[in-house]
Write a protein that binds this DNA or RNA. Structure first.
Lengths: 196, 196, 196, 196
DNA sequence: AATGAATGAGGTTTCATTCAT
DNA sequence: GATGAATGAAACCTCATTCAT
């Protein structure tokens, strides 16, 4: 087994242990036992417990970041609606595909400590800004309602996160496509039908 | 100072310490120093660290639970829209009013350990069921769109939580009424304006 | 037992353990076992292992520093020779009185690490400067031979340290007064009697 | 590179690392990195860390031991004074020539652990006995003052060690010949000129 | 012979909780 | 009831040494 494989082996097992027990309850001993290596071996590959956790979260950030595609408004071959759905689908897919890291991201990584909080916030802000920029674009094209794009972005993110939170924490079972449709439809028309 | 006061004094200071440092970084020493009592005194009033944290969270649950009013569809004096807004307003108000506990609820209490996760989930499910029931009611009255009420509830909760998360974590500054309006408008019409 | 007593109790036992085993072989467990306290108690009174060792050495520095008296050349009631002997006597006495710390000073504290080396050197330089100043005084009064006072000081210090080293390490047995006489006589006339 | 060369290469680099960091702070990693060999290679040439350190010290013992010449009192061609000076010169030279091992001998090897202490003491006793025997010889020839030859030996050793300690630890700069003269003159007449 | 990945014993330190005063 | 000194379990990490390649 070469270095990269060994590293990966430890990383994956650590992910599972973190997902199962949470950051603090996950002991180095649990991780090395799961990975089937000696305690010292762990420290050959990772600085410390915090570092491996951070790497798991960082990789997830990257994976999610890569899932997002730029919406092409000029391309007549694909409708904007289809492209937006595709984006939602890809993000939801990335999260569903690896429930362990999703659980880590949405639960264990939250409130770990102030430094990690900043990291998380910074990731969500980044995502938020990307989305916000798209929304502002959409507003000028008349396909996004006028209004506070920043708020739109936050609420969209929140809706998505909450669904995924229930999926990974409660085993809420919805097929990926169903989730995509629900989110899309929610973003399109909300659900209140009141004459004010 | 009588027992109840002393207890309250410790509780409030613990809240601030938890909010500032997070659960694990908050030491009993920090709490008793903030409260100005001896270490042993803490244990006269609370079982252990976990118990005081749980009490803080439980109180918040109660406070938020009490903020919710039943929507009266038969009362002609108050429109349904107004009542829904009022509900959103009361919940947002309860969260904004005490940012320290809100931060604890949305950050520190998340992913603390499996047992606490269950508690949190159970609270959110409770809230979700209440909301869901209202939505199903609304559907039969034609003021809520047909569709998956459970999903509606989750996404609504997520949107609200995410706004409040940014408010308490990043100091996002929006007046309470503005938040209420944004949420209401989001629930009413979403923001996508695409002809599919 | 009050705080100061408890501190002293740990300090004295630590001194014995360090003297017996040397710095690195002395485990915190050995110290607390000797002192009859719990492991945590140790850390209530001392920052860490290094700190207690440093305190032991520092106290010895102080004790030895206080043993030195200024030589009064103007006082006709006490001859200079008597005063010098008195100084040697006091220093030798301070070292013999507490063989454990003397052993620590002359053996365990040596070469502990670069930072500690600087501390030691700084102490010996201080002592050396004091002695050197006295010698230069003495030279102007004609009671110290002309020559390199700095060297005189170093060699004197070395002779004294070496005797004490053998006393505490090998149990070399000489009465204090005998040691004083030997040093004094050595400093007075050396021992080589060669016509060059 | 043949076995002996490789061994020497590791030995010299280990010497430098020990001299720079001290025994405990010198890691096997530092040594093999300095020597440019793999970690496992180290253990092909040396039993363990302690063994290589011991070998460095032992070689120094040998080197110094070999520097000492027997004083010939019958040889009219070389005065006893010249022969004594020559001995001091050779020892000081051996120490100055390799400051790294001298520092190891006078600092790092001191107080390493009880076993090593015995080794050191045993070396110094050996040297001391040699010197003592010469002094007793000298006393019977009238060229060494009557008195405790054992003490003379210890103090001489101490004076020499202390000078060298300051040379290697503080970079005290004296030409070799100057050191020799100072020691010789100190042994010849001390420096106190007091009428008791 | 050389390598360097793997090992795991061992030691320091932290901190929630207890309990004698 | 209040105190705070004492406790000791528990967990992280280091690093000398081994051994398969």
């Amino acid at each position: 087994m070469d270095k990269a494989e060994r590293r990966q082996q430890i990383l994956l097992n650590a992910r599972d242990v973190f997902a199962k027990r949470g950051y603090h309850a996950a002991k180095i001993d649990d991780i090395v036992a799961a990975a089937g290596v000696a305690r010292g071996t762990f420290y050959l590959y990772f600085e410390d417990k915090r570092a491996i956790f951070e790497e798991i979260v960082d990789r997830t950030f990257t994976r999610i970041g890569m899932a997002v595609l730029r919406v092409e408004t000029e391309d007549p071959s694909r409708s904007v609606a289809a492209q937006i759905k595709e984006n939602i689908r890809r993000i939801v897919g990335a999260l569903i595909e690896d429930p362990a890291t999703t659980k880590i991201l949405l639960s264990d990584a939250v409130g770990l400590d102030p430094a990690f909080d900043r990291k998380l916030l910074s990731f969500y802000e980044e995502i938020g800004k990307l989305l916000e920029a798209s929304l502002i674009d959409g507003q000028s094209m008349g396909i996004v309602a006028q209004g506070d794009a920043h708020m739109f972005a936050i609420m969209t993110l929140g809706a998505l996160k909450e669904i995924m939170y229930h999926v990974v924490m409660r085993g809420l079972e919805y097929p990926q496509e169903r989730i995509v449709e629900e989110i899309f439809s929610f973003l399109s028309a909300g659900y209140l039908r009141i004459q004010p």
